Amino acid sequence: MATGGRRGAAAAPLLVAVAALLLGAAGHLYPGEVCPGMDIRNNLTRLHELENCSVIEGHLQILLMFKTRPEDFRDLSFPKLIMITDYLLLFRVYGLESLKDLFPNLTVIRGSRLFFNYALVIFEMVHLKELGLYNLMNITRGSVRIEKNNELCYLATIDWSRILDSVEDNYIVLNKDDNEECGDICPGTAKGKTNCPATVINGQFVERCWTHSHCQKVCPTICKSHGCTAEGLCCHSECLGNCSQPDDPTKCVACRNFYLDGRCVETCPPPYYHFQDWRCVNFSFCQDLHHKCKNSRRQGCHQYVIHNNKCIPECPSGYTMNSSNLLCTPCLGPCPKVCHLLEGEKTIDSVTSAQELRGCTVINGSLIINIRGGNNLAAELEANLGLIEEISGYLKIRRSYALVSLSFFRKLRLIRGETLEIGNYSFYALDNQNLRQLWDWSKHNLTITQGKLFFHYNPKLCLSEIHKMEEVSGTKGRQERNDIALKTNGDQASCENELLKFSYIRTSFDKI
């Protein structure tokens, strides 16, 4: 039985969820670079991206490699990797027998973001014989899940209580170790020597080791999670996991709180800001991140802002960003909400898709409305799209047979046209069989910064309504002859009103 693990408890099935942008060198404390989270699957090609990484700022997932063999891993080693800020997950990587050479110096898994409450997941690794993470000293947050690894031993010899604050939620089941077939031998045991430290858990006094050649490092209890030197002297209180010299914040392997210019500090002093819960960055760093993602459509890219001495992905609820200094300031009234469309555009074809934009005031991208039916549609669209004030790209209304009016965009005031449909149009209306009105132009103002209007096959939309939009939106004169079809717009509506004058002759039985 794995020490510190839980057996036999019912657990939810383990679901495996399925960018080499360097964020800056980590400095003297770390020998390499800070790398983003990685999802490495199918083959070993991307694994080489770990070569210079000291910190993975995010998670590391290595999974679904069915053609790899043990010899493929023999020359692979990433000794610079010290810390993973989120979680480490391995799933069905064939041929991998140990992690001792792959990650010989991995010391800390912070667990800032977890995989279903777990910071370390080893699942269905069919050839893994031992973990071998002999320098792993601290899992700051989260638990361990090690399950269905039929060859995995050296679990009962690990004292997880020396690595985690609590072992109650560890789930370590259905491994070879369960069948008591392992016969784990710690260093020196074969020669009758006791080389590794022994600890007591559940009444068992057991030597602690990761492999037959690597003991588990056990520091004096007084050192807590700070770690200790090879001689057993406690590291500085700002260290986490390990250090090369005692009581020196510049000799830590990793930091308990924050890293700044080669030393570990309790908090980031001005003019620095907390970033990702582990390091200090200056304003320029946060500003660069903001600008890199301002026009990016890459998933996970955030326009970072500053709030409460932190550089964070977005302002919290009730705050909006001051564009001059990136500071989050309290909103006066309802907060603006910028919604970034991942692929640059979004099609609204149902109430469900409209709900995804609920509360958005600025759309960074283009909207395509293609709704053919739905219950209580006008009210639903207004509830979900009615706060949109600005669209950076274009607005396209296409084959939306259920629409009679666009009044559900009740606050839309600006279409920038930074991206144009077919390279020309910022407003595009095609084949809307029941569209009769755009907006009530006596109450609604709309500016279209650039781009043209396109109207074709809107049989109940009168040309007068379209011409009014040209005047109000500032697009009059931009359109070419064929942009607004004269014969297919309003051709099934009563669009022309003329005053009919009647004269009559009164007659009676005795007068003409």
Rank of each mutant, 00 (worst) to 15 (best):
T107W: 02
G183W: 06
R41V: 15
L44E: 08
L90N: 00
I84T: 00
L96I: 09
G37R: 03
T45P: 14
F73A: 06
E314T: 15
G241V: 04
F285H: 09
D184Y: 06
S98C: 06
L89P: 00
Q299E: 02
V126I: 04
N282E: 15
F116G: 09
D184F: 04
P70I: 04
I62A: 01
H302N: 13
R141M: 06
I109Y: 00
Q299L: 11
I163P: 01
A190W: 12
N322Q: 09
P220H: 09
G188T: 05
Y171F: 12
P271L: 04
S244Q: 14
N43G: 08
F275L: 06
S237F: 08
G32H: 04
Y94R: 09
P316M: 07
G111E: 00
G188W: 15
V281M: 04
N150L: 08
S225L: 07
E97A: 07
E238H: 14
I82M: 09
D288M: 12
S237N: 10
E207W: 15
V265M: 10
E49D: 13
Q303C: 13
I122R: 00
L90P: 00
D75P: 03
L240E: 09
N135L: 02
F275A: 03
I201F: 14
Q245I: 15
A198Q: 02
E207L: 11
E168G: 03
Y30C: 15
I185E: 03
N195T: 12
L128H: 01
K251R: 13
N149S: 08
L114V: 03
N195M: 12
W210T: 03
P330V: 12
M137I: 03
R74F: 04
L44R: 09
C286H: 03
F115H: 00
N295E: 07
L128C: 02
E147F: 05
C215I: 03
L174S: 08
L96F: 04
C280D: 00
G318V: 03
H28W: 09
E238R: 07
H236I: 02
P31V: 09
Y87P: 04
E124A: 06
R141L: 12
A230R: 02
H307N: 00
N325E: 14
C335V: 04
C186V: 01
F275Y: 06
F285R: 02
Y30T: 04
R145H: 08
R279F: 15
I312L: 05
C243A: 00
G241F: 02
L89H: 02
T199F: 13
E57H: 14
M38W: 02
H28V: 08
C215T: 08
C215W: 15
N179P: 05
F258W: 08
A254S: 11
M83Q: 07
H290V: 12
E57T: 06
P316Y: 04
L327M: 14
T329K: 05
M137A: 06
G95V: 02
V34P: 13
I185N: 14
E168D: 07
L64Y: 11
C153P: 00
E130Q: 13
P187E: 04
G300M: 04
D178L: 08
N138P: 01
E49H: 03
L128Q: 03
D165P: 06
T85K: 12
G95S: 04
E180I: 04
K310T: 06
N257T: 10
R69H: 11
G142F: 01
N42I: 03
L260W: 04
P70V: 14
P269M: 03
H59C: 09
N149M: 01
R69C: 10
T68M: 03
T157L: 04
R279E: 03
S225C: 11
T211G: 07
G203V: 10
D72V: 12
H290F: 05
N257F: 11
C186R: 02
C328Q: 02
L136M: 01
S77M: 04
V305Y: 04
P270H: 11
L88P: 00
S324M: 12
V55A: 09
T107S: 11
I109L: 06
G192P: 05
L63P: 00
E180L: 12
P70Q: 06
T68I: 07
D277M: 14
K67L: 06
W278Q: 04
S213W: 04
A230Q: 14
H302Q: 14
I172P: 02
A156L: 03
C209D: 02
P197I: 14
D39L: 05
N43P: 02
L164P: 01
T229Q: 14
D261C: 05
V253L: 09
H212Y: 14
S161A: 02
T107E: 04
L136R: 01
P249K: 02
C243L: 00
D184G: 15
M38R: 02
Q276H: 13
K251Y: 13
